[in-house]
Amino acid sequence: MLEIAVMLVAAMLCIALVLNMWRLIIGPHAVDRILALDTMYINSIALILLYGIYNQTPLYFEAALLIAMLGFVSSVAFGKYLLRGDIIE
C-alpha cells in the first residue's frame, strides 16, 4: 500500500511542478515568476523526501535542507533586487 501511495503522491507533485512551470513561463510580472520559482523549490523538497521514503534511506535529508536554505536566500535576493535596485546596500 505504501508503494502505491508513494507513486500517487509523486504523480501529484509532478503535476504541481508542471503547473508551477506554466506560471513561471506565462507570469505577467517578474514577481509572479519569483513566486513560481519559490514554489518549485518547495515542491522539489517534497519530491526529494518522497524519494527518501521510497528508497528507505535518510541520506537525502541534508540535500532537502540545503535546497530549503538556498531557495529562501535566492527568493529574498530576487525580491530585494526588485524592491531596492540592489541586493546589498
Partner: peptide
C-alpha cells in the same frame, strides 16, 4: 504514513493549482 502522504500531496497540488 499513506494517509499523511496523500493529504500532503493533495495540499501541494491545490497550492499549485491556486498559483496558476
Amino acid at each position: 504514513i499513506s494517509a499523511l502522504l496523500i493529504f500532503g500531496g493533495l495540499f501541494v497540488l491545490v497550492g499549485s493549482i491556486g498559483l496558476l
